[in-house]
Design a protein around this nucleic acid. Structure first.
Length: 443
DNA sequence: CGGGATCGGGATGCTTAAAG
DNA sequence: CTTTAAGCATCCCGATCCCG
């Protein structure tokens, strides 16, 4: 099979946009793994950069997904990978991938020779010189090369992106990043945006929507939909007409719309719809903005559509279990004269509508069973005022009000650990020691 | 200009599932 | 069975827009 791949004029390829936790791990597209690796990914892959240096990178399997990890961190560091940049992976067989790295301006990035990492394999050949037309220093250790053919390749990738049918292994955020990286303006449809849809400010400016009172959307069937542009202070929204467009095009939760101003026209915008589910639930004709999501269909189906699986993270239960163990192991030396407990940050503790549960045994022993104000003090950083609530049935002690501020102000991330020392039982004041997960500290 | 409608975000109680 | 994590439903509130 490897030989067959080599003989082909075009190697199987995929691209990845850098976002999220890309500095620590990178998900291999499931479709690529199934199609081209027969779901059998070697434990190590060789990544060859444009400078012809190679990295042996470990592959870790989580559920059905394969991630580049361990040495990938070095690779990411050596290439100063940044959010929004993307890499084209071409498979040459024999676990060997050739990589092309593109910056946010679509120009190829090449690491400088002196930035050779200890982990890189010493099979690098001398770089060809004198072919670069422009050299712009973007990151330390990285020079920017921008020959025309690379621009064309980037454009080809961009073009291809428009045709991609995003499968279920792509998260909503990933979709956004993919499209934004392609300099297009996309939104992910949610029922709450049925009547008004916010246009990203940069896109509104770039497409001149700020100066328009209305635009015409061209749907994939070629139909035109006049849509009113609503301007409220700094925000630009699509108003009257947008709902007609959504309903007629049967947009479903998490479907992605890509908007492109038709060249040469004043206010015609082509809309490509990338659907997440072929078996989506149609929006009823009489849908109103006041509708709750449960109106649309069975609960299970709505859950599946509204909360797409986040693939680039370890399953939450696994995280929780591992972390509990790790927290205990990590702080054997921690002692205090005060009662204390450790809490490892899980996803729901630091993202979205967040709150944090205090260990029940600890909370029952030291806290009162009615809601109280809690003071959290991080030495040298400050004091935060929060409140805990107590679940009536399960006696769950949960910090809610004020916890979000604490998380944001202290940049807490998943896997960070907080040690809560109850230094004042009367006023319920905790001294909080934050122990960062080293994976969250990669610069 | 004022009242009603709508939206987004936060808070909270409850339920469910998983793990030990 | 208990504990924990996570999601859902509902309510509330402030901001803003629409319409008469």
């Amino acid at each position: 099979m490897d030989r067959m791949l080599k003989r082909r004029s075009e190697s199987p390829s995929f691209f990845k946009v850098m976002y999220g936790d890309y500095k620590n791990k990178l998900l291999l597209p499931r479709a690529f793994v199934i199609k081209n690796l027969n779901e059998d990914v070697p434990s190590k892959l060789t990544l060859t950069s444009p400078s012809r240096r190679s990295w042996r990178v470990s592959v870790k399997k989580v559920d059905d997904d394969f991630f580049l990890c361990s040495e990938w961190k070095t690779f990411a560091k050596d290439h100063a990978l940044q959010v929004g940049e993307f890499i084209v992976f071409s498979y040459n067989g024999n676990s060997d991938f050739r990589l092309k790295i593109f910056g946010k301006d679509f120009c190829m990035k090449v690491p400088l020779p002196e930035k050779i990492s200890a982990e890189s394999v010493s099979n690098s050949k001398k770089e060809t010189k004198g072919k670069e037309r422009e050299q712009i220093t973007i990151h330390p250790g990285v020079k920017h090369v921008c020959p025309e053919e690379i621009r064309n390749l980037a454009a080809a990738v961009t073009e291809k992106m428009a045709c991609i049918s995003i499968n279920t292994s792509t998260t909503g955020h990933e979709k956004c990043e993919v499209m934004e990286a392609a300099c297009s303006f996309t939104v992910i449809f949610e029922p709450s945006t049925l009547y008004r849809m916010d246009v990203p400010r940069w896109a509104a400016i770039a497409n001149g929507l700020k100066e328009k009172d209305s635009i015409v959307l061209l749907d994939p069937c070629g139909r035109s939909w006049p849509v009113k542009i609503i301007k409220r202070d700094v925000r630009i929204e699509m108003g009257a007409g947008w709902s007609d467009f959504c309903i007629s095009n049967r947009l479903n939760t998490s479907d992605t719309c890509r908007f492109t101003l038709v060249e040469g026209s004043d206010n015609f915008i082509r809309v490509d719809i990338l659907r997440t589910s072929s078996a989506g639930i149609p929006i009823p004709k009489q849908a109103s903005a006041a509708m709750t999501m449960s109106t649309y269909g069975p609960k299970e189906a709505m859950q599946a559509l509204t909360y797409p699986r986040v693939f680039e993270s370890v399953p939450s239960r696994l995280v929780g279990t591992q972390n509990t163990v790790r927290a205990d192991i990590a702080f054997p030396a921690f002692t205090s004269d005060y009662p204390y407990c450790t809490v490892t940050m899980s996803r729901s503790y630091v993202n979205g509508k967040i709150s944090v549960y205090l260990p029940a045994a600890f909370a029952r022993k030291y806290l009162k069973s009615s809601p109280r104000e809690v003071i959290l003090e991080v030495p040298k950083r400050g004091v935060w005022f929060t409140q805990y609530t107590v679940g009536t049935q399960l006696s769950q002690y949960r910090l809610v009000t004020g916890w979000k501020d604490f998380v944001q102000d202290n940049d807490l991330e998943v896997d960070d650990v907080c040690i809560f020392e109850l230094v004042d039982r009367e006023n319920i004041k905790f001294k909080v020691t934050i122990v960062r997960n080293e994976l969250n500290l990669v610069a």
